Simulated scan of single mutants.
Amino acid sequence: MEKQLIISVGREFGSGGHEVAQKLADDYGIALYDHDLLKEIAAKKNLKSEDLEAYDELKWNRFLYRTVRGLNSSPEQNVANLQFDFLKEKAKSGESFVVVGRCSETILREYESMVSIFIRGDKPQKAERIMKYYNMNEKDALGFMKEKDKRRKQYHNRYCPIAWGDSRNYDLVVNSSRVGVDGCVEQVKHYIDLVRKYHK
């Protein structure tokens, strides 16, 4: 049986991190879990995916909700917990997969088969990617990038002890502006080969 491999991908908006994750999943022939995992959760729980997506990766306001007997009245936290539990179940089952975000580098840290990476980039190259992908001008792209990263940071830092983007939280941090998407994939695969070599 093939040894389990879990790849956790954190990324700055516009860095191409999602593309890196997709290429890794394709190269290893394993599943990719990103925001679409809510559809799988919804089907399993007999819920509407749109209802879950409405509260995905939102900032949780602790002053508006409370926890009683382990149950929280915050829909944002409940949706986050559903995703965390889903990923833990997949990991526990022995499945190999790539996961984008979802605090996965923290919630799956106990698994030796997990490799955590963070894809960052330089502002000009990230803005250029966003402008092209979303058909935006530079000013709008920079504002969009700032807002998306702010939202990711708030979400991550709500549930994780080490701040989003802090290199101590990841096995490997790669700058896509320096090596491109394919270069990031190459670096990650090389690192995984080394990890497997020294942890047989």
Rank of each mutant, 00 (worst) to 15 (best):
K3N: 09
K3P: 00
I6R: 07
G16V: 11
G17V: 02
V20S: 09
L24H: 09
Y28F: 04
G29E: 07
G29W: 12
A31E: 08
A31P: 01
L32Y: 05
K39R: 05
A42N: 05
A42Y: 05
N46A: 12
N46Y: 05
K48E: 05
D51L: 15
Y55D: 08
Y55K: 09
D56T: 06
D56F: 00
F63V: 05
L64A: 11
Y65M: 07
T67C: 06
V68G: 13
N72G: 01
S74N: 05
E76G: 13
L82F: 08
L87Y: 03
A91L: 11
V99T: 11
G101Q: 03
E105I: 03
E105Y: 01
Y111W: 11
Y111F: 13
S113C: 03
V115Y: 05
S116C: 06
R120E: 12
D122H: 08
K123G: 00
P124Y: 02
Q125V: 12
K126I: 00
M131Y: 08
Y133C: 06
Y133F: 14
M136D: 12
E138C: 12
D140T: 12
F144E: 11
K146R: 14
K150L: 14
K153C: 03
P161D: 12
W164D: 02
R168H: 09
R168Q: 09
L172Q: 02
C184E: 10
V185P: 02
Q187P: 04
V188M: 01
D193V: 13
L194A: 15
R196P: 06
